[in-house]
Amino acid sequence: MSFLQRSRLFRSIVRHGLPDSVRNRALVTFTNFFLHIQPVKVRLRAMQFTRTFYLGGLSAACFFILVVTGVLLMFYYHPSVPRAYEDMKDLEFVVSSGVFLRNLHRWSAHAMVALVMLHMVRVFFAGAYRPPREFNWVIGVVLLLLTIGLSYTGYLLPWDQLAYWGVTVGTNMAAAVPVLGDQIRFLMLGGHGVNENALIRFYVLHCVVLPLALTVGIALHIWRVRKDGGLYLPPKG
């Protein structure tokens, strides 16, 4: 073991020893890309399950699952009017584990919306939005909107009756906005009807624009948690 640790290859990747001392444990967090979003030190109180119910982390986990399954689904999906629905049927009937993939994506998406909302409720009742964290609350609201936007844009992609009418109704609701309503609808659909323009627009939003925005938003969100000294903890006593 110690031989391995001393090898040049190992040292080129990991620059600290086993986390057996306070210094090494701090180094693990400092030098690891995936862990450095964490504060260097976490209080034990902050780790209690009932403190956060891990809602933020679970939301992020859902997003991770959605990205992975989403990319796999993209291998089978053409965002075009004649093919979209047929691809859905092929995923259901002939692609190996296609049903599993689609259902995983679908249920994770539902779960993510629910978890993000619960996360927000938890933060509200814990009072964690109070200064100096008020801007992070604003970022959180933006993340909620992005999540809902992803959920809505994904709804059109199967191109079945449910999708078609869901989007028809949704965009007509947007058209009811005073003064700018019709322009908003036009912008959403890329035209005046739910057709191939709307499909490609929703597809690009769902697969590129919104996930990228969400990724950046999540990074910002967690980074600010860290900068504000980790999780908000109420004063003792």
Binding site: E86, K89, D90, E92, F93, V94, Q161
Partner: peptide, 17 residues
């Protein structure tokens, strides 16, 4: 019926809608 389907229920179209 539903030609793309590979299960009896789906292929015979005896599914909702």
């Amino acid at each position: 019926g539903q030609g793309r389907a590979t299960t009896e229920r789906d292929a015979h179209g005896k599914v909702h809608h």
